[in-house]
Each structure stands twice: as C-alpha cells, then as structure tokens.
C-alpha cells in the first residue's frame, strides 16, 4: 500500500487506532466511526489532529456535527465495484463544505483515481505500487468533463457558453 497526496507518494503521518485501543497523545490519529461518536468530547481536547474512518453504509448526516473538529475523513471502498463512498465524498465536500483531508481507502486502483478526485478525494491509499506511480498520468487522462463537482474543473456545458465570447478556441481547456 502507498499513500498518494498532491500527486506524490508520501509518508502517512496518521496512526490508525483500532476499536478499543488507547488513543496516543500528540500524534495524528484516525479513529473508527463508533469511537468518534462515543468519545467525541474527549477527542476534541487532543492537541494533535484527529481523523475518522467512516464506513460506506452510514449516513454522512450523522458525521456532519463533528466535521469542524476533524482534520481527516477516510472513506471506504471495500471493493472497487462498491461506489457508495463517491456519494459520501461529494456530500462531504459540496453539502457540508468539509475542507480537511478526504482519503480513499480500501480497494483503490488506478482506473478509479480520476472519478475519486472529481468526487472530492485528495488523498489515496493505493493498493498497487505501480498504480501509485501512475497517479499523475491517470488523473490527466481526460481534459473534458461534463459534470460539475467541487473539484474546480471547467465543465463542457459552461465552457461552451464561454465559447460564444471566444469562438475560435480549437481545443478544450486542460483544466
């Protein structure tokens, strides 16, 4: 497993805390959802950043009240076919305006990177090393997008209207 952030392979500064294990002080941690909900008050008092691992069958609305205090939300792809976390990611970014790190975990493969990035993920626990190295290539494969999301890319429907002002543009803009 490799962690990719900002297009590069990086060290993971977060420590995973398992169900009942004590939460170490002074280090960034990722706690399970149940733990967050049970010990919210206590976790807030920590100095170091706290993140949560949120399962894909729980509503984001339940997590929403805690988002202010979270540095990271890790969502789960138990299998690459299971796309529930794409919806959760968009809700986090677009509805609840979550600005922290949004991490894709589980069965994360090259051919899903761009979808994940567009849905709002900015950090990826990548299963295969070769996929991690191909991250930049995989996310630059496309230069045209039809759906508006919070990723800031220009969408064709809009770009077309802009074309009325600059009618001679030959190619679609890269981003």
């Amino acid at each position: 497993m490799r962690l990719v952030k900002g297009g590069r392979v990086v060290e993971d500064r977060f420590v995973r805390v398992l169900d009942e294990a004590p939460v170490p002080d002074g280090v960034p941690v990722i706690v399970p959802a149940a733990r967050l909900l049970a010990d919210a008050a206590e976790l807030v008092r920590r100095e170091a950043p706290t993140g949560v691992l949120w399962p894909n069958d729980r509503r984001i609305a339940e997590l929403a009240p805690h988002l202010d205090r979270l540095a990271l939300v890790a969502l789960v792809f138990p299998h690459f076919k299971d796309g529930r976390a794409y919806s959760q990611a968009r809700q986090l970014r677009e509805r609840y305006c979550f600005g922290g790190e949004l991490r894709a975990t589980g069965h994360v493969l090259r051919d899903q990177f761009l979808f994940m990035q567009r849905a709002g993920f900015d950090c990826f626990e990548v299963k295969k090393d070769a996929d991690a190295e191909a991250f930049i290539e995989a996310t630059r494969r496309f230069s045209v997008f039809y759906q508006p999301t919070a990723d800031g890319r220009t969408v064709a429907l809009r770009a077309r209207l802009a074309r009325a002002i600059a009618p001679r543009r030959e190619r679609a803009p890269a981003r």
Binding site: F80, K81, D82, G83, Y86, S87, R90, Q112, L114, F115, M116, R118, A119, F142, F145, Y146, Q147, T149, A156, L157
Partner: peptide
C-alpha cells in the same frame, strides 16, 4: 448523455 458519461459518482452503482 453528457451528464451521465463518465459520471464521477455514478459509475459504480
């Protein structure tokens, strides 16, 4: 067609 093509959220329904 355009909205659904390579939809970033609905390709793994």
């Amino acid at each position: 067609r355009q909205w659904s093509t390579l939809h970033p959220e609905f390709t793994f329904l």
